[in-house]
Simulated assay, not measured.
Amino acid sequence: MLGEVDVLAERLRSRLPEDAAPMQRLRLLNQFFSAELGFAGNINNFYDSGNSYLHQVLASRRGIPISLAVIYLELAGQVGLSACGVGFPGHFLIKVKLRQGDVFLDPLTCHSLSRSALEEALLPYLAKQGAGAAGLEHYLVDASPRQVLARMLRNLKEIHRSQSDLLRLLSVQQRLVILLPGDMQELRDRAEVLESLGCWAAAAEDLQTYLRRNPAASDLELIKRRLRGLQARGGPGLH
């Protein structure tokens, strides 16, 4: 997969003068990514799990904002642009850092987004947050690689959960627990999947860890009841 991206980057680099300004590099990358290669949103099947697997996105040229952004960001880095992802609510963005200021792009189209457009897109989210919601700048910070991966995994988590695909859901949940060892919600959610699969001892162990690390949890009594039920059932579960 990385080799394929390297080949695409080399194609683009061969068209760039060595002294090309960052803005020229950005324009050529947008043209190359969107118009020539044809990367775009999979609007006909937006909730297909394949949209989150980069090798499938590279093959089909269709994806969701975050998977398209990951490929775009790798190409951007290889042509000398400083760019990163932005975990904007509801729609992952690309930030390209130029001397004259940051440019925010929609990964589905490579179109730049004005500040007013970003503020408008944020309004429904802010309305849900109430009076204490943070301003726009709070939602435009750089996303770390760990945050990007967690967001991709959580997209898959919701897809597999909605389809009741418990084995794939467990696979994703295992990765989230490893990636985010301090996130007790992910540990609790893994316990729920394990319980659904009949892995009662493993589920009980996760809930015990959850209670030990999170003694003031808001769902404390509910988790204690679930744990007692699991311990009463016992048994090895799946092998």
Rank of each mutant, 00 (worst) to 15 (best):
R27Y: 09
L8P: 00
D102N: 15
D206W: 10
Q173M: 12
Y47Q: 13
R25V: 02
N155D: 08
L29K: 00
Y139R: 05
E36A: 02
L16I: 08
A121E: 07
L123C: 08
L75P: 00
I71Y: 00
D6C: 03
V70N: 01
R62T: 01
D19I: 10
M23I: 09
N42D: 10
R161A: 12
Y53L: 08
R13L: 10
P124L: 09
R168Q: 15
G101A: 07
C84R: 04
V148N: 02
I71L: 09
R212W: 13
Y72S: 01
R188V: 05
S218E: 15
F46R: 12
F104L: 06
A76D: 01
E195A: 13
L73I: 02
L153Q: 03
L12N: 00
Y125P: 04
M1R: 09
R27Q: 14
L37H: 00
L140I: 05
G38D: 03
R13M: 06
M152S: 09
S112Q: 13
L123N: 11
A133M: 09
R190M: 08
A203F: 05
M184G: 15
L118S: 04
H160S: 07
S82H: 14
N30R: 07
L105V: 04
R188H: 14
A83P: 02
M152H: 04
Q231R: 15
A143V: 01
D142N: 09
R146K: 15
V193Q: 03
F92L: 04
S162V: 07
S52W: 01
A35K: 13
N51V: 03
R25F: 06
A143T: 05
P65Y: 00
R154H: 15
K95L: 03
Q174L: 13
E4T: 04
E192L: 14
C199I: 01
L98A: 06
G87R: 08
R99Y: 12
P22T: 06
L126G: 03
L105G: 00
L180C: 13
D165F: 06
P89L: 10
A35P: 02
G101E: 05
L187M: 11
S34C: 14
